[in-house]
Measured scan of single mutants.
Amino acid sequence: DRYEFNINGVHFTIDDAEEELIKLIEELLKRGARAEEIEEVIRRWER
């Protein structure tokens, strides 16, 4: 599934997002994580 979200006006799209990654990102968003922090999480996840 495609997952899309915005952080401070920056648009992100993840194709074939796994449910666990989506939950992790949503938790980070609730905590007010910065875009750079979430980008790093996504990079690590994709390795």
Rank of each mutant, 00 (worst) to 15 (best):
E46I: 10
D1S: 15
L24T: 13
H11T: 15
N8T: 04
I14E: 00
A33I: 05
E27G: 13
E39N: 07
R31E: 07
Y3P: 02
R34D: 13
I38W: 01
W45R: 01
V41Y: 09
L29Y: 05
E27P: 05
R44V: 11
E27M: 15
R43M: 11
E46N: 11
K23Y: 12
V41Q: 07
I25S: 00
A33Y: 06
E39Y: 12
E20H: 05
L24Q: 14
D16S: 15
A17G: 06
L28E: 06
R34Y: 11
R43D: 05
E40N: 06
T13R: 08
R47T: 10
E26L: 13
E46M: 12
R34M: 14
V10D: 05
L29F: 08
K23F: 13
D1P: 13
I22F: 04
E18D: 14
V41S: 06
E39Q: 11
L28I: 06
E46D: 11
L21E: 02
D16A: 14
R34A: 14
E27C: 15
D15F: 15
N8W: 04
E26F: 12
I14R: 01
E18Q: 12
E46R: 10
E37S: 05
E36N: 08
I22R: 05
A33W: 06
H11G: 07
E40I: 07
E37H: 07
E39D: 07
W45K: 01
L28N: 05
W45L: 02
I22P: 00
E27F: 15
G32Q: 10
L29W: 05
D15Y: 13
V10F: 08
I22Q: 03
N6Y: 12
E36F: 08
A33R: 05
H11M: 14
E19H: 10
T13Y: 14
A35H: 09
T13L: 12
I7T: 04
R43C: 08
E26Y: 13
Y3Q: 02
D16E: 12
R43L: 13
I14D: 01
R44C: 15
R47Y: 13
N8I: 02
L21S: 00
E36H: 08
E39W: 13
R34W: 09
R47E: 06
N6K: 06
D16V: 12
N6V: 15
D15I: 15
F12A: 00
E4N: 03
V10A: 06
D16I: 12
I7M: 05
Y3E: 01
Y3W: 12
L28T: 05
R2H: 08
E26T: 10
E4S: 05
R43W: 09
A35P: 11
N8E: 12
R31C: 09
V41M: 10
L28D: 01
R47D: 06
G32T: 04
E27N: 11
K23R: 13
N8S: 08
R34T: 15
F5S: 01
I38K: 00
V41I: 10
L24S: 09
R2W: 07
E36Y: 10
V10T: 09
T13C: 12
R2N: 06
F5M: 04
F12V: 05
G32W: 05
I25H: 00
T13P: 01
R2V: 10
I14M: 04
R2T: 08
R31Q: 09
R34C: 10
L21H: 02
L21W: 03
D15A: 08
E46P: 06
R31I: 11
E26N: 10
A17K: 08
V10M: 11
R43F: 09
E19L: 10
H11P: 07
R31F: 14
E40T: 07
E26W: 14
I38Y: 04
I7S: 05
I14F: 04
G32C: 05
I7L: 08
A35N: 06
I42V: 08
N6S: 14
I42Q: 01
I22L: 05
E26V: 13
F5Q: 01
E4C: 09
I14P: 00
V10H: 15
I22A: 04
R34K: 13
F12Y: 13
I7C: 02
E4H: 06
E37L: 07
L21F: 05
E37D: 10
E18G: 08
N8A: 08
R31N: 11
V41L: 14
L28K: 07
N6C: 07
E19F: 12
H11D: 07
E40Q: 09
I42K: 02
R2F: 07
E39G: 08
N6L: 10
E4Q: 05
D15G: 04
N8G: 13
A33D: 03
I25V: 08
I14C: 02
L24N: 09
E39M: 14
A35V: 15
D1Q: 14
V10Y: 06
E26D: 08
I42A: 02
V41F: 13
E4R: 03
W45T: 02
E19Y: 12
K23V: 12
I38M: 07
E37Y: 08
K30H: 11
L21I: 07
E18W: 03
E27Q: 13
E37K: 05
